[in-house]
């Protein structure tokens, strides 16, 4: 008895433009496969939340330590741009949900279209973020602006934090707000890019007809990931742009 003919459940394709799906040999039923992957993915999302949890803990800790720094720092951020980005992400979450729906109903073209729109949303988000970062960089407030800069013990001068317009001059440790802002939104931005990459990967599969009513697991999971990315931003936005 060989490994492969152990179980070979095949889900037929609903139409000629789709491909059948073979359930992995160690699962008995497609439902078991679906549920396993989904449970695994939820656990993974939990680790992502905890990863950001560490950053949020640092945020709250330093907010407590240097409240004025966070008030003044928060004013430097443009809440209109942040708000716009929030809208963009919310919309893209909606398009992603529609994409999943399209996959579940075997609508290949719609799936491709909605995925495309979601990637577009991600791109707009990153472009807006780029302009925000650029502005901070021009004002000497952007962590990554001075690559690998050393810190001068004697003068206490931080290479990336030159604060050209002196906006943070009156508060203690003015760099702290921007350090946290850039680290949090930077790691979030990385997630946006990874999410967009995954959606593009889904689009390739969709074009080949891999996803249909019988099998749409990867679309579902990437959709969940995208909602998480959105959700984290929903927390970041008020904390960084509004609360202070």
């Amino acid at each position: 008895m060989s490994h492969d003919d152990h179980h070979s459940v095949v889900i037929p394709a609903p139409g000629p433009e789709f491909k059948p799906h073979t359930v992995a040999h160690h699962f008995d039923t497609p439902v078991q496969e679906f549920q396993s992957a989904k449970l695994g993915f939820w656990l993974f999302l939990a680790t992502e939340i905890l990863l950001f949890g560490g950053l949020f803990a640092a945020y709250f800790y330093f907010h407590e330590q240097y409240p004025e720094t966070f008030v003044v720092g928060g004013k430097q951020l443009d809440w209109r741009l942040g708000g716009l980005n929030t809208c963009v992400l919310l919309l893209s979450s909606w398009t992603m949900a529609m994409g999943v729906r399209a996959a579940q109903t075997s609508q290949k073209k719609k799936l491709l279209m909605y995925c495309g729109l979601t990637v577009l949303g991600a791109a707009i988000f990153m472009v807006i973020k780029f302009f925000e970062y650029k502005a901070k960089s021009d004002h000497g407030l952007f962590v990554f602006s001075e690559m690998l800069g050393g810190y001068d013990t004697a003068t206490g001068q931080l290479p990336w934090f030159t604060d050209i317009h002196g906006v943070m001059a009156g508060v203690p440790h003015g760099h702290m707000f921007f350090a946290i802002y850039v680290t949090m939104t930077g790691i979030h931005g990385l997630h946006v890019i990874i999410g967009a990459g995954l959606i593009i990967w889904i689009m390739f599969g969709a074009a080949k007809g891999r996803f249909h009513a019988g099998y749409y697991l990867p679309v579902d999971l990437v959709g969940l990931y995208w909602h998480l990315v959105d959700l984290i931003w929903i927390f970041l936005f008020p904390l960084l742009y509004l609360v202070p």
């Binding site: 640092a58 330093f62 962590v143 990554f144 001075e146 690998l148 800069g149 810190y151 931080l158 290479p159 990336w160 440790h173 760099h175 702290m176 350090a179 946290i180 850039v182 680290t183």
Partner: peptide, 9 residues
């Protein structure tokens, strides 16, 4: 990140 950029946390 701290070692590379000195964010200060």
């Amino acid at each position: 990140i701290e070692r590379l950029y000195h964010i200060g946390i």
